[in-house]
Amino acid sequence: MLEIKDLHASINGKEILKGVNLTIRAGEIHAIMGPNGAGKSTLAWVLSGNPAVEVTHGEIIFNGKNLLEMSPEDRSREGIFLSFQYPVEIPGVSMVNFMRTAVNEQRKYKNLEPLSAADFLRLMREKKELVEMDNKLTSRSVNEGFSGGEKKRNEIFQMAMLEPKLAILDETDSGLDIDALRIVANGVNKLKRPDNATLVITHYQRLLDYIIPDFVHVFYDGRIVKTGDKNLALELEEKGYDWIKKEVETPVEQ
């Protein structure tokens, strides 16, 4: 489904990603862990097409298409969804209006008619229930004045509405209380299908108790430096990143 080959990218001329290789197949869940500033969010930006990041080398193939040639909106319409680490507030734009526009844009891309008002509201209701999202939130402006946890839950609600092929969750667990964490994780699991995939970026092993990954990657200094199964997350939780850093840096110093 997704193939990243030797990806280098920079922000404001500073190289952040220094040769990322990653392959994700349909049906898989991948977790990325790694210290602050390693470039995890930068990778998520590159996948979703944020113009702030400049790709300097490498390629990304998504379902047979060259992802780097697509506009951010087309990547979304092709099924890439990013749950933002810091969701953005859009004052004056109601959640309903925002979601209806988003859903209908996706449908237009697939040559489908826009949803009728009734069908749209039905879909909203169904997905709100899935993530146990408060009615009051969807009647407000996009993320405006939402608490940190509410914003994260809203991301998963939008993901449920858009049913992406590849969902990238950038620290969606940060800022969630225990109940919300369980609800969000349940939401992700319920949306899981053999033909979609999930990339979870997190600092905490506990999320991976709910969303069980097929692969865990350790991200460090703009690269994936280690890949393992879910036990790698447990090991990191126990030992921290120092041993990884040593492992990576020792050969360089030789």
């Binding site: 933002f84 969701p87 953005v88 988003a102």
Partner: peptide
């Protein structure tokens, strides 16, 4: 730009 990109990421073009 953050607002625009957020919308783009949901499939909404910049003009919309």
């Amino acid at each position: 730009e953050d607002q625009i990109f957020y919308c783009n990421q949901r499939g909404i073009s910049t003009e919309d």
